[in-house]
């Protein structure tokens, strides 16, 4: 019987059909998905902080409205993804606790600080650009609710990337000081953006099984290469350079050659040693704890209303 179920699961995955919430699935598949989707959801929620930092100091009402909408989208993306984990039997409260107790991770990119307003533009262009590269193939991931959440997210990310690039174009048309600010920001974010694709394939422990289950559709290195190829002409159009002396077009490969990020730094940030790790988690914890009375009051109100309704119906 178990073999039969496993066979059906394998066949569904091999046929590129979707696994749906109540289907039988191997424990490892369920666990891997919960880990990956929760990590993704946490990234969206923590990702509100670096840019949220600039909402009150946006240089115009237009930029402020855009930034607010973008940060609100990140909250929405987190919620679509938490909703997908719940179809696998995960508990929302439990996931929140795991995040604020440091038992589950989020993307390391959000542990870098946003020092200038140019960072808002560069995050939109490069960080969301890298996220799009990662996420577009996930629209075809084997788990139905995750794939559907990714389709919604990808549609919205396009706005994020374009607003960032437009912001940078505006700054590049400004003063020399503004152009320098953009270049400085690009210098700081380029390597962390490349790290967003994860460690090199040779060191990635999860890739092989995830590819077999069709949770992941491309390897880390494939996606990183794609991102570099896409970004170079965009940088040229903008008038900035990437801080990589090894970056050059390789005629033979038909792709750009590029240097490797500092993987020691990557692992250090993953393990909690980044500039903002402690601050990000402390902020999330405070928001959760400060919101407790709201959650309790709303639940108490709902209960009271339900009781009143029951009494009314009993009397009638």
């Amino acid at each position: 019987m178990a073999d039969d179920l496993e066979l059906r699961f394998e066949r569904t995955v091999q046929a590129d059909a979707r696994i749906e919430p109540r289907d039988w699935m191997p424990d490892g598949y369920r666990k891997t998905l919960i880990r990956q989707i929760a990590q993704h959801a946490h990234s969206e929620i923590i990702g509100m902080q670096p840019e949220g930092n600039w909402i009150s100091r946006a240089p115009s009402l237009r930029r402020k409205a855009i930034l607010l909408a973008k940060v609100q989208d990140e909250a929405g993306h987190g919620l679509y993804l938490y909703s997908a984990t719940e179809t696998l039997g995960a508990d929302r409260e439990d996931l929140t606790l795991k995040l604020i107790e440091g038992r589950q991770k989020y993307s390391s990119i959000f542990n870098y600080p946003t020092l200038t307003f140019a960072d808002v533009g560069v995050i939109g262009w490069l960080v969301d650009g890298a996220a799009i590269c990662n996420q577009v193939p996930l629209c075809r991931t084997s788990y139905g609710p995750y794939a559907r959440a990714m389709i919604r997210i990808c549609k919205e990310e396009s706005f994020h990337q374009r607003q960032g690039y437009e912001l940078l174009m505006t700054m590049m048309r400004g003063t020399q000081q503004q152009r320098d600010m953009v270049q400085d920001s690009v210098n700081r974010w380029w390597w962390p953006a490349l790290m967003m694709f994860g460690p090199p394939d040779s060191e990635s422990t999860n890739t092989e099984q995830s590819m077999a289950w069709r949770i992941k559709r491309d390897t880390n290195d494939e996606l990183r290469q794609k991102f570099v190829n896409m970004s170079v002409p965009q940088a040229e159009a903008l008038g900035v350079t990437f801080p990589d002396p090894e970056l050059r077009w390789n005629e033979e490969r038909g792709q750009y050659d590029f240097g490797q990020p500092d993987w020691d730094e990557f692992w250090q940030v993953v393990k909690g040693g980044g500039v903002c790790n402690a601050q990000r988690i402390a902020h999330r914890r405070k928001a959760h704890e400060d919101g407790a009375w709201v959650r309790e009051a709303a639940a108490a109100h709902a209960q009271k209303q339900a009781q009143k309704q029951a009494v009314k119906e009993g009397a009638a």
Binding site: S83, R92, P145, A298, A302, Q305
Partner: peptide, 11 residues
Amino acid sequence: VGSLHAPDAEM
């Protein structure tokens, strides 16, 4: 389209 948590139907 998905799900969410809320204390009551209106919320």
